[in-house]
């Protein structure tokens, strides 16, 4: 076995995830303090898998309120918390900066981030809540199926791509700032609310291809967009009373998390983006 660059490289193979993982018992003993149903984890220096090992172990002790400190880029926080039996929703507070795929496949827990989040927040999330006191990266809420995500500031590209709904499973994504291109691409269900609070007065959203391929769900957008910024599968409408109620509900919820004046936000101009067809590609074939 050869060692190159001081890393454990065998035949040029390096395991970024599973190499040198420390046993969970050891990490748990050193980094977790539990008091009643509250737990505090110090994630300093933990690898992706380690932090989730420790989270799972802490949850299994019956703790429902967990604070994770010193998080710096570790991925998949909250993903490995699926317990078929004795499912208790947890509240996880993350201090500093979680890595990619925060809350991927999330199963009903609540995650609060006091910092920025990266790519893939709520990837294929099933249920629960993610609240980010900061910004988030690309593909936020990709294929999200249920639950709620609140992002205080801006988000990156391809937000809410292929978000979908089924009966009582209705995902909701509220973004305080603005989004980049391909917002709501392939969107098949759910509600996206884009508030544009980070824009200066009158400054338009910059995203292009909004709702390209959209065939379900709705985007409520506050502020200005030009027709050429919208995908050709999307139509823009005025809000009706039912829509206004929905938007008001989630804007109040947004303000309860991050502060701000809900009435002032709601007094801004909203438009509603809807797919023009449930079957955007129904007519491209010759049978």
């Amino acid at each position: 076995m050869s060692r190159m660059n001081g890393m454990n490289v065998k035949f040029g193979y390096r395991d970024n995830f599973l190499g040198d993982i420390r046993p969970v018992d050891e990490l748990f003993a050193q980094n977790v303090i539990i008091e009643g149903n509250r737990g505090v984890i110090n994630a300093q220096g933990m690898r992706h898998k380690e932090i989730n090992d420790v989270l799972r172990e802490t949850a299994k002790k019956g703790v429902t309120d967990i604070t994770v400190n010193n998080v710096f880029g570790q991925r998949y926080i909250g993903t490995r918390l699926y317990f078929p039996q004795n499912h208790k929703p947890l509240t996880i507070e993350i201090n500093k900066f979680p890595g990619n795929d925060l809350g991927a496949f999330l199963n009903g827990h609540k995650i609060i981030v006091n910092g920025n989040a990266q790519d893939g927040v709520g990837n294929t999330m099933d249920d629960g809540e993610i609240i980010v006191h900061g910004r988030a990266g690309d593909v936020v809420a990709m294929s999200m199926r249920g639950g709620k995500i609140f992002i205080r500031d801006n988000v990156g590209y391809r937000t809410a791509i292929h978000m979908k709904e089924y009966r009582d499973k209705l995902p909701v994504l509220v973004i305080g700032g603005t989004a980049q291109d391909f917002l709501g691409e392939y969107m098949a269900g759910g509600i996206v609310i884009l508030l544009g609070l980070s824009l200066k007065n009158g400054e338009p959203h910059r995203a292009n291809y909004i709702g390209t391929g959209m065939h379900g769900g709705v985007i409520f957008l506050r502020g200005n967009v030009e027709q050429h910024q919208l995908g050709k599968e999307v139509g823009a409408r005025e809000l009706d009373d039912a829509d206004k109620k929905i938007v008001a509900k989630y804007v109040h919820e947004y303000c309860s998390h991050f502060g701000g004046n809900a009435e002032e936000i709601l007094s801004g101009r909203f438009i509603k983006l809807l797919p023009v067809s449930l079957r955007p590609y129904g007519k491209i074939y010759a049978y």
């Binding site: 593909v139 990709m142 089924y166 499973k169 392939y186 098949a188 391929g213 065939h215 379900g216 590609y281």
Partner: peptide, 21 residues
């Protein structure tokens, strides 16, 4: 099929060409 795929009845089930993540 709608129930198994968890999408509303009658909508196209579109699988994009790439996985967007």
């Amino acid at each position: 099929i709608a129930q198994t795929r968890m999408i509303p009845r009658g909508t196209d089930a579109l699988s994009p060409a790439p996985q967007h993540d």
